[in-house]
Amino acid sequence: MSVLFHSRTLLPGLFLSLVFVAAALISLVWVPYDTTVLNIANRMKLPSWEHWLGTDQFGRDILSMIMVGARTSIAVALVAVGIGMSVGVPLGLAAAARKGGWLDEVIMRANDLVFAFPSLLIAVMITAVFGASALNAIIAIGIFNIPVFARLTRGAALSLWNRDYILAARVAGKGPARISMEHILPNVANLLIVQGTIQFSLGILAEAGLSYVGLGAQPPTASWGRMLADSQTMISLAPHLALFPGLAILLTVLGLNLMGDGLRDLLDPKLRRARV
C-alpha cells in the first residue's frame, strides 16, 4: 500500500479520474435534472444553489449535462480502447511469435498503413460513409487504437522470447500460442495497462473533438464536445456555457495522464528496483 504514496502523480490522477467515473456511474441512476427536458425561460443562468454550474442555452442544468457527457465520453473511450486492445494485443503477440515470418510482415505493414493515416481523418471518413453517431465514433477511435497496442505488444514480447524461461517452456513442448498466452502476455500486461490509460485519455479527447465537429454522439445525447461547439457563439454572453465542459475535458484528461504516469512508476520493474 505504501507504494501508492511513493508516486506523486498517482493519487491526484486516480482521484480526478474517479470523480468523473463516479459522475458517469451516478448519472446512470440519477441526475439533478433531466437533460432531455428543455426550459427556455430559464436559460443561460449563472451558477446558483439550484443549478450548481448554471444552465445552458436551452435552460438545461449544466451539471447534469456534464454528468451525462462523462458517461458518453467514458463509454466511447472505454469501448474504443477495448477494441484496440482485443484486436491489437493478439496481433502483436502473433507477430512476435512469428518474428521475421510472413505473418509478422503482413501484420506490421498493415499496422504501418493505419498509423500512416491521420487518426482524425479516419474518423471523419468513417462517419462520412456510415453517418454520424456515437457508435461510429467508437469504431473510428477503436481502429486507430489497434496499431498502438499491436506495436507495443510485439516490441515487448520480442525481448521476452529470448528469455531462458521461454526456452524452458519450449523445451517442455509448449506451442507458440500457448507460450504467448501463458508466459508472454502476463509479462507485458503492466505495459498494456499504462498504455491503456493513456489511450483512454486520448480517446476522450478524440470523442470530444469528433462531437465538436458534429461527428460524434447526436442530440439529445449530451456530449462535452458538442456542448463546447454549441456554446462558442455565446462565449461573450455566457462564458460558463463553454467553461465547464472545457474544464471537464481538461481535468479528466489530466487525471488520466497523471494516473498513467503513476501506474508506470508503480508497475515498471526497473523503476521499482531503483526505488528500493
Binding site: 428543455l38 447526436q218 439529445p220
Partner: peptide, 22 residues
C-alpha cells in the same frame, strides 16, 4: 439545429420520439 433540439424535446413530451441527424 437549435430549433430541432427544442422541437425534439417538445415532441418527446407528448410521446413522439425523433431520431435527429444533422
Amino acid at each position: 439545429r437549435r430549433g430541432g433540439e427544442i422541437i425534439a424535446a417538445q415532441l418527446r413530451a407528448v410521446g413522439i420520439e425523433t431520431e435527429i441527424s444533422n
